[in-house]
Design a protein around this nucleic acid. Sequence first.
DNA 1: CTCGGGGGCCTTTTT
DNA 2: GGCCCCCGAG
Length: 829
Amino acid sequence: MTSLFDNLPLTGALAADTATAHSAVTADGARLPGLVPPREDAQPEPVRGGRGRDAEALLEGLNPHQRAAVVHSGPPLLIIAGAGSGKTRVLTHRIAYLLATRRARPGEILAITFTNKAAAEMRERVEALVGPPARAMWVSTFHSACVRILRREHAVLGLRSSFSIYDAADSLRLMTLVCRELGLDPKRYPPKAFIHRVSDLKNELVDPDAFAAGVGGSNPYEENLAEAYRMYAQRLRQANALDFDDLIMTTVNLLQAFPAVAEHYRRRFRHVLVDEYQDTNHAQYVLVRELAGVATQAYDDGGDSDLDRGPAPVLPAELTVVGDADQSIYAFRGATIRNILEFEADYPDATTILLEQNYRSTQNILSAANAVIARNPDRKAKNLWTAAGAGPKIIGYVADSDHEEARFVAEEIDRLGDASGVRPGDVAVFYRTNAQSRALEEVLIRAGIPYKVVGGTRFYERREVKDAIAYLRAIANPDDAVNVRRILNVPKRGLGERSEAVIAAYAERERISFGAALEAAADVPGLATRALGIVTEFARLLADLRAMAAGGATPAEVLDSALDRSGYLAELRASDDPQDATRVENLAELHAVAAEFSEADPDGDLGDFLERVALVADTDQLPDDDASGGVVTLMTVHTAKGLEFPVVFVTGLEDGTFPHARSLADPAELSEERRLAYVALTRARERLYISRAAVRTAFGVPHELPASRFLDDIPDELLDWRRAESSMQQLRGSWGSGGVGSGRVRSGATGGTGPRTAPSQATGATFGSATPRADVPSLDVGDRVTHDAYGLGTVVALEGAGSSQVAKIDFGTDGVKRLLLRYSPVTKL
DNA sequence: CTCGGGGGCCTTTTT
DNA sequence: GGCCCCCGAG
């Protein structure tokens, strides 16, 4: 699966716009997801042995445990697959084996993966093994599978098939509208917090009524939340829209409320396979049970339907789940590790197979990862081993600043290329938070190393792309209030908040959708004549575009027309803001994506296109292997899950960065950070680098951060410190022992305090919450000082006093800096 | 109604 | 350092 954009060069914006490196990189078309239309169920074709293989050949080269997992038959199967243990191979071979032995027809297989990218890969690999008939399989994410089911069964639920799917930003916007309407103070009741709670509730399958019933009368916060949840759900329904959590929850509701529907899918999917089971949430857990037909309770459909044909019992499907509790890193979005830990309790006759041999990494890398994860309490013991050799030691580096850290990474990539023939495409750089990519990008650009950022500000989250999509959504689904309102005055037509409010109020009163109210603008009281004219014209624009879409125009054509006739494109073109030029490019790329979609699937209509756009994340556009040497991949550790690279840099190993400051207080969250570190380390095949910065700039303010506690857990003998101390530490050390500047470089073998910073008052400090240093140094002009990043300097001027005092300090070659003393790592000499 | 400037807040991580 | 919201002026 290649995208049209795969080989586009970086645009000029990348070089020109370093100040907004995130957006600039996004302008690189190579990051666009290639949209490939869904493969609708094909007629089951007989499975041939594909390439002449017979079933037995599928077992070649597998170890006994893997083999057992592939051939297993009957009771539910739990595969505990350690990092790098070949679980993807096992899963694909298992599916191929089921097909080759005719235990399953392709149409009977439902395989759930974590990302669309993983789904596409799995499909390709199975097809490579057994041939193209495999296309009748359903291989997709939970969300895509649910959308397919919901689109088929929409009528049962009273949904129109054109329903919109709201992403996180859409949902937040809707919640914001709801909270405003309820008159809630956004300070005390932030919509963001509400939407998060609502998401949790939906993951727990708690509907607004049930939640309201459980809220006592004494807690205003919870009461307001209950009210907001109710109205939010109602608004979604009115808009004929589902948010991301609804996709799962509604599907579960569908299966539970309509036994005939459930039975249909149970008859169909005789084999259900779920990858990354440790990251499923409760709703997904229930969904799996429903689909696999292992229900334990009798369902009541209210006795109303003729759908209920008195189901004959359907035998449960064969259920296979694969996962690794040590790699559970999505608790923050509702994933519950219990699902995998309790699998044997949930399915008493389950078989469990452990895959503990690692085929990915060298022993040094594995030992380090094992040492880190071993410190997690309440963990089922598991020890990965490898037959590969020890490999090179892990290389550590302590930089003075985040910028210096980036410089080390860039230099090392360069050096590896010269010395060991490592190609950029072999290298990945990981970090805990997206914001950390900035320093890395700046340095890599300057060093001329080609790179790609995966994640971060996504293409589909860019304002102009969202605007364009909003037009398409508004066209496809007239009731989609959020999106109609988004574009009501975009581009500026002279319709303000007041007009919008009047129309919204009218819609509310007449119990019609916002879109319908636009059509009836003439009847809306209080709408100024001028506004009426504008609204009428806008309504006509939408109506024309809808007619166009209904008349069989392709999504690309509709998009074209919408951007043109709305004047959106003209406004961008007329602007002299260089950012707007990038926006035009992005829209051109969106157009190309739409065109490609139609090319691949001539029957795909606007709704199909929007469905793809809603569900395809940018992370699905991970770098493909390519022969040209590829590019360095930058991404968060979360995004790195499931991937592997010959060379891996894990950066920002500081307490407060990784583990993240927000997790330090909570043991459960700290455990998740540790699992995250485990995931990071185990991505490396041959070479692993770990680094930290003594001073990291967050929110424009430098902070001194101690070494990550995870560094302490890695045995010394696995590590080769290229630089074990910051300049500051070297300086401090030299005061004690004499001998200026002879810092402990490459001193990994010495025992003593090791690489970790001597604990300072900064330990556990949360950056970002304005935590000033307690000891603001009192300085005078002429004082000699030392700064963690800039080194020695002389105070040349002072402004203000006390906690707001700013000093101008001359650092010689580093120049004169203005520093807010309260936040600066400055020490008086 | 739009635009520009100032202030407050922010950052986990994402299907 | 950057984004978003609010406010006041045109």
